[in-house]
Design a protein around this nucleic acid. Structure first.
Lengths: 210, 210, 210, 210
DNA sequence: AATGAATGAGACTTCATTCAT
DNA sequence: AATGAATGAAGTCTCATTCAT
């Protein structure tokens, strides 16, 4: 696992692992609360109750810390969603479960996902190009697309661009973050059900009834 | 028109208007290219081929410049989309036209919208809370929701949460930016058509055929 | 008169004189209100309802404008006080009248004197040394000292350092500005009378009664 | 002691205390030499032989640094003068010792007091009003006034406004700074003795001899 | 393993001054 | 005679990073 080994290959000590986790947690909190741009190492260290230098000691750079957040969040998300999806047999069920499980994960990991969304927009390479794009999302995006293609192959789903549909599904799930930020009393279950229904109608073969 | 008058009420001179437009244009370019966080006044000035002080001369603060970008982009988007939508008679047509016109606007204003998306994420109030949220988007969001409710009232559309559907429509259209950044050869027309079809199926009353 | 002629020797036009007076007046207001450090040309121009460039047009530099304020205030002060003093015959009366007339002038020219005090502290030569010091005040200081020496010569006054006494008189009169700033309801007449009494006792020959 | 503890309540480390003292010292030197307005952090840092950032590291803002100077100077002045005054029994002696000790303090702390005087004039609140005024001086001013009232109560002193007299005493002592700046060879002892005599005559009951 | 201290680059902003119109 | 526009220097402050302890 990437997060438990150094680049050199040696295992991290227990303490090191714990410290990194603590720092990552604080970084998530701070980014979620004040935004990526305002999330200075000083603020993160203060939130963690440690000295600024500790972060530099455990992470080569701020970029590495941020990358760790991204890795952690995506790994956790994958772990939460994939097994449930793979337990399904029909493409329609897979899609529905993917959406429901994703929204549920967003609910239980609100701060993680708020931070991730912010990082996503802001993380750039030195030449200014966005470091994270659809391509880095290919794993997840690919998973959804696979479900969609599977459904088209089995005849459950109608004709549509699997790429466009996949992007839309991903964006739709992210939409929960926007509403979350705006309305404290957002009902995640309703949101998940609505979304599931929406994409069920959008994907399934229509002429079954014709 | 808001963008052509000062707070004091006086009209701006022609030169002032032109300079502001030039600066706003440069700012959009720079933000779209290197991201909001890296878009310093120095970089924007350099891109515009002017001195840093000129920006401060024409804009009270960086915030005002950024707000001008937001205002301009949203005004232009509204102007491009609304008339076309209002020319429609059925809700289904309105929704389809809204999506198609929006995607078309995104195609002709790629840099504007990339910049806007970046600003959206990053603009915060002093206490860290996001300055722009769903609520600031209410105008546009509200427009979509109105279409959706109208469709439900006329019986064209089925039952669904208009709020969730509206957010999803908005997010889906924004999705074009993600694909755009990843694939140079993106076919906007296909994207628009796919999206229109997707939401047509997702919204229309299903049991007409039952 | 210095203030009505250019360095070159030509007379100023009527308009030029009026403009300079207007600008000087605004500068006094602004300096008195927000302090010398915050009194930018922009603020002064705004207060005068003119463009920033006008100031630069009529004054070679900000320093010249400030020097004009100093000259004006000191000239006016001298004109208000000197005739009254010179109308007295005894040194004691001269000193009393000097103090009373000075305080009265401070009352009618509060803003001028507040500004002057501020400028006094802040005006420096390029190498950092204070441009205005006791030596520049020699005129006024000298006047007071002359009165004091006159009194000692006539035997009205006792023995004391005329220099120390003169500085103290000047400082005492300036003290009215401090109280003015702190207490809105300051009674200038009482202040003047107290001061006059104070220095009467401090200067007069004591052993007349012995 | 206020100056040795952080706002949070923790003690400062030895190094921190030393650095702050060094920076305060440099700031005093620079302000005394070139004036408050020209005393930029860059100049102060250069004078201290450190990097500009060090100042920001040890002081939250320039204002905090300046406030520290004020606190230090006033605390030191109080410590130098008060014990000597309190050792006296008669009001006349108290006043004389206050003046003599103050002038002596000004002699040994010339740079401090020059800086303090400059800061006093220039420190303003955001709305432009002077931050330090007679009221902030109440402590010291109050001390002098107490002596004066005490003397009136015991019958040592005659009738006069204690407030006006107190302001004048304070201003008279400050006058030493003006002469100091103008004449290198100023004899502080003479100045102190002259001032003491001056205020002795100005305060004491006159009609003892009548 | 951790920290406090220091750095230097770069951020935004203010300002006196110059200049073409 | 006046103005609006532009400049470039200098101001304070923030920040990621480095380093001695």
């Amino acid at each position: 696992m990437r997060s438990e080994n150094k680049a050199g290959g040696q295992d991290r000590s227990f303490i090191e692992t714990a410290r990194r986790a603590q720092i990552v947690g604080s970084a998530i909190d701070v980014i979620a609360e004040v935004g990526y741009a305002q999330a200075s190492l000083a603020r993160i260290a203060e939130h963690a109750g440690i000295s600024k230098g500790v972060i530099s000691y455990h992470f080569d750079s701020k970029d590495e810390l941020v990358q760790q957040i991204v890795d952690d969040a995506m790994t956790a998300g994958d772990a939460a969603v994939r097994p449930l999806v793979e337990a399904q047999t029909t493409a329609a069920d897979m899609l529905r479960v993917y959406i429901e499980a994703s929204v549920e994960f967003y609910r239980t990991h609100q701060r993680h996902m708020l931070a991730l969304l912010d990082i996503w927009t802001n993380l750039r390479t030195q030449d200014g190009r966005q470091r994270l794009g659809v391509r880095d999302n290919e794993n997840e995006m690919g998973d959804v697309e696979q479900i969609l293609r599977f459904g088209q192959a089995t005849g459950e789903f109608g004709e549509f661009s699997t790429r466009v549909m996949a992007v839309t599904v991903k964006q739709a799930v992210d939409g929960v973050l926007l509403l979350m930020a705006a309305y404290d009393d957002l009902d995640f279950d309703v949101y998940a059900r609505e979304l599931a229904g929406l994409f069920d109608r959008a994907t399934r073969k229509e002429d079954r009834w014709r």
